[in-house]
Design a protein around this nucleic acid. Structure first.
Lengths: 199, 199
DNA sequence: TTTTTATTAAACAAAAATGTCAAATATATT
DNA sequence: AATATATTTGACATTTTTGTTTAATAAAAA
């Protein structure tokens, strides 16, 4: 393992993430990853020993990052609606660059066991859920199980970007037509989830 | 290729679909598929010549089936709300048995080109979208681009089931707790999408 | 400059997955 | 029952992917 840091290790991980999360090549080979990083396949082994270890590391980092992103939004020092908007902004941006990240995580959890991740869970969710509950009591949100509110929120945020190729095909929409369609997703989501007419 | 029909060919396809769509093993090997079907790997080659051809056939069938399911719901002889409920029922049932079908389709479209599917598109969507528009004009639905209504609908239907393992982990929910949560999904979706309090 | 150390690469080895073929088994037909 | 045909299998071959080793290159330290 290297002691000096030339950035190659991070470059390889970043390239792997690009292939896996951005392009949706969920089983990119070591060769493809090395090519994407512009290094030889041997370097990949030098830094990570095996494909499995590289994938495991990428998985762990993605899981950790997701959890932290979630926490950062939910713990931010804002009123509820501000937190919500922050969360939407953050996750929409993330989905735009890495639409297949969640898909990767889930398929990994399916093929491998869940041993890898048993450490990870998002703490601040509970507090945020309390806030959601309060907002419902205040009549600002439709009353429902606060977990469902969150799941609905993430559904509306993520799914359209994950399944874009499928719906472009089924609905016969061009790339541009589709982009226009989901262009103001934030507004759409807020209108749907908040009990207001003007958000 | 066989002339008599002993069901083996269908059995192999069904087993492949179970692995791919139900268990989310998006790159099941020929051996795994053959094992799941209880036949030898050679039979798989006898019927499909190669893994690629088997996958292509499964892909095509799934795409076709999806499109037809969509059409059947949208063309059904019911008032709008009936169609909508029918569609929700059909797709929720489908998601319960094959949660990773859409994921498979999309990742295939990403790795392979889109040449395979250029024939497939859902015709009756356009008519249904007209109906959606009418309902909006009548004030029964929040006004928005009708395509967005559809995409929101599918998001709420599919995403929670696709990402179940991830959210169980992040929210620290048991299988039962999660099932309870999304138990009455239909009611939830209708409440969210329709401009009524009692659906 | 030489010596050490980190990094990369090319060649090779091993493993895993796919694909082929000839023979065996089962099924139907006469 | 004998023959023909459909189906399945086991053994082998090929290809693809992964992993290792050894030597070359580049960078830093002495």
């Amino acid at each position: 393992m290297p002691q000096k840091n030339t950035g190659t290790e991070e470059l390889i991980k970043a390239s792997a993430k690009r292939l896996l999360f951005a392009e949706g090549k969920l089983h990119a080979t070591t060769q493809e990853i090395a090519d994407a990083a512009g290094v030889s396949r041997t370097s990949l082994h030098y830094y990570f020993r095996s494909r499995d270890l590289l994938i495991a590391e990428v998985f762990q980092e993605a899981m950790q990052a997701l959890s932290e992103r979630l926490n950062a939004c939910m713990e931010s020092d804002k009123p509820f609606k501000g937190k919500l908007e922050f969360l939407i902004d953050v996750f929409l941006r993330d989905m735009a660059s890495f639409p297949y990240q969640e898909t990767f995580l889930v398929t990994q959890m399916n093929t491998l066991g869940k041993e890898l991740v048993e450490t990870i869970h998002s703490g601040p969710v509970k507090n945020f859920l309390e806030e959601v509950k309060s907002e419902m009591d205040l009549g600002n949100l439709k009353p429902m199980d606060p977990y469902l509110f969150l799941i609905n929120l993430f559904s509306l945020l993520s799914y359209p970007l994950i399944m874009a190729p499928l719906y472009k095909q089924l609905f016969q929409l061009t790339d541009n037509a589709f982009s226009d369609l989901i262009g103001d997703r934030k507004k759409m989501i807020l209108e749907l989830l908040l009990n207001e007419t003007d958000v």
